[in-house]
Design a protein around this nucleic acid. Structure first.
Lengths: 197, 197
DNA sequence: GCCAGAAACTTTCCACTGTATAGTTCGGCC
DNA sequence: GGCCGAACTATACAGTGGAAAGTTTCTGGC
């Protein structure tokens, strides 16, 4: 099947390779032509499956939102509280850096595409569930949603862009794992309720 | 001076126009050639001042880090606490979206360039000052630094990428200003110390 | 006033990119 | 066995960043 005219599973192969390239070089230098060359197909072959370069990125974003939603759902199903759900958000970003970058870069995407819009909506719905933990009775619940999302999104973004390392902040934690850092940091928001002290 | 052979202030004009283009179309579709055409110069003219496309982005990042550091410094000098400093971080992102995006996209930059490294170091130093507010005596100070930075960075990033709007989260706040949203959200981290209640 | 030399900018060329269109090969179904 | 649609190739085109060499303007010293 290796060198047949029909690649066999070009669509999946493109998505996999694209994620590798974006992970190491960022979404800017990601090139359809060099990617096609890596896979041994003509440079217009991916276009048949995705329509355009933007189509490839859209497909990656869809994969990403679906994967993220599934993870968050599984974490809650396993009894994880809002903090663990947030840590899972960071874990997803670290394990799928290319997907994460593309998901939150709307200038790279066709955000109007129905499949993408649906996947994103579903992931956001998972995300905002359980925000009440942060804002107990009488608290500012909208602010709690933004605070919870922002803190894990911020940690993920700063980590992926290398800014936690290059700023020296990472070093304050010794050799602690990023997920531990996330748990300790987000824990300041999620877990120091007076009623627990 | 308008149509002279020497543009007069091409360097500044390029930086200004580049910020406009990046603000509306993102840093990925930003093109040196169309930018030069907008300014009425040949497409290689910017290269004389910046060396390369990456050089333009580096210069924008330097401007950004310098501006951010100055803002944070001014806020603290005016008596602003750590929360207000964080709100100022968000304000900078909103007012200079192009700069903010480029500053935190290391794959677009030459992060080894000395001027950029210095500007970034200075900004990060301003940023981490005062994190003790979040973690009082005996608290987890490294985690406090990460938490404070992440929550404001997360809000800024989610807002700039339009995800606060498209997720529907923004609507929970009615017509509240983004800076108010930031203040309320980050306030959950910064201001609900038991000793204050 | 003038004249180097440096700075600012243009011209031309190249390799590479994404996209459009037309053509070719293959798999599967009737 | 033939045919149709899906998968892929070939070719062409406009746009991109970059390299190199040439042209115009500014500046400083006399």
């Amino acid at each position: 099947m290796a060198d047949r005219y029909h690649h066999g599973n070009l669509r999946a192969a493109v998505l996999r390779r694209a994620a590798e390239v974006i992970e190491s070089e960022g979404p800017y230098s990601f090139s359809l032509r060099s990617l096609a060359a890596d896979l041994g197909v003509s440079h217009t072959a991916p276009r048949h499956h995705f329509g355009s370069r933007e189509g490839v990125l859209n497909a990656i974003a869809v994969e990403g939102f679906q994967g993220l939603a599934e993870r968050l759902r599984a974490t809650r199903a396993a009894g994880g509280d809002f903090l663990e759900t947030g840590v899972e958000y960071v874990r997803f970003a670290v394990e799928h850096p290319a997907h994460f970058q593309v998901m939150f870069a709307p200038t790279l995407l066709d955000v109007g595409e129905p499949e993408l819009a649906a996947a994103r909506r579903a992931a956001f719905a998972e995300l905002t569930t359980g925000a009440d933990t942060v804002a107990p009775d009488g608290g500012d619940k909208p602010a709690a949603v933004v605070a919870g999302w922002s803190i894990v999104h911020g940690i993920a973004t700063l980590a992926l862009t290398g800014n936690l390392d290059s700023s020296g902040v990472r070093a304050l934690f010794g050799d602690a794992d990023l997920l531990d850092i996330a748990r300790r940091s987000a824990g300041l928001l999620f877990r120091h309720r007076p009623s627990e002290e």
